[in-house]
Amino acid sequence: MKRNLVIRSLQSLLALLAISVIAFAMSHLTGSPVDAMLPDDAGPEEAARLTKLWGLDRPLYEQYFVFLGNALQGNFGDSIKWQGQTAFGLVLERLPATIQLGGFAIVVSTIIALPVGVLAAVYKDTPFDSAGKLVALLGQAMPNFWLGIVLIWIFAVHLNWLPTSGRGGFSHMVLPAIAMGWFQVAAFMRLTRSAMLEVLDSEYIKLARIKGVPERRVIWVHALKNAAIAPLTYFGVIAGSIFTGSVVIETVFAWPGTGLLAIDAIRGRDFPVIQAVVVTFAGVFIVANLIVDTLYAYLDPRIRYQ
C-alpha cells in the first residue's frame, strides 16, 4: 500500500514534469516570445535587450530549467494583456470563482445522481428506470455550451426567473451549474445504477433480507455502502472535467473564473497567463486523481496495483 502510494506519487510528478515541458515548449513554438511581448513600434535594440534580459540567447535546456525553477516558485512572469499583474497572481485571483461554481455543480449532481441511480437500480425496468436512463442519455448527448445558451434563453430571457450571466448570489450559480453538471449526473447515475444492481444481487444482501432487516435499510445502508465505491473513483474524472468544462461554461455565462481567464488569455496571446493556467489546471487535476486513487485503495482493500 505504502509502496504503491510512492509509485503513484512519482508517476504524478512525472506527469507534472511533462506538463511543464509542454507549457515551456508552447511559448517557443510560435517563434520568439520577444516578438509576442514587444509593442509593434519597438526597435531591434529593444528586442536584443529583452532577449538578453530573459536569457533567450542561452541554450534551450538551460532556459527550460530557469522556467521550471521559476514555475516551482509560482513565477510565470507578468501578464501581457493585464498590465501590472503577474500571470500566477491572476490565476490565483480567479481560482475561487471556478472552485465555487465547480464545487456547487459537483454537489448538485451528486445530490441528484446518487438517489436517482439507487432508485433506478431498485425499480429496474420500470418507467422510473427508463426516465432516469433518458435523462442520463440526454445529458451525455447535449453539448454543454448549447445547453447553457438554451437555459439562458428559457429561464433568464423568457421566464425571467434567473440572471443571464455574471457572478453574484446563489441565483447566478443555478444555470451554469446545471449546464456543467448534467453531463456528470448522467455518468454518475449510470455508474451508481450498475454498481447497485451488482451489489443487490449479492449473497449478503439476501442474508440481510432473510434476517428481516427493513428493506429501506438494506438498500440505503447495506447495499449503498458497498456500491458507492465505484462512483467514488469517478470523482477524479469529475474534478478534471469541471476544469475543462469551466472553460466553456464560464465563456457562455461570463463567469469570471480561470476558464474565462484562459480563453481571454488565449485570444490575447498572453503566453505567461496561458502557461500559468495550464500548469495550475494540470496540477489540480493530477493531485485530485492521486487523492481519489489513494482513497479508493483505502476504502476497498481488494484493490491491488499491478
Partner: peptide
C-alpha cells in the same frame, strides 16, 4: 498513457490551436 490521461484535453487543444 498515464501522462496523456492526466492532461486536461481541452486546454491542450486550446494551446495547440493558438500556437499552430
Amino acid at each position: 498513457v498515464d501522462i496523456t490521461m492526466a492532461l486536461p484535453s481541452i486546454l491542450l487543444a486550446l494551446v495547440l490551436a493558438v500556437t499552430v
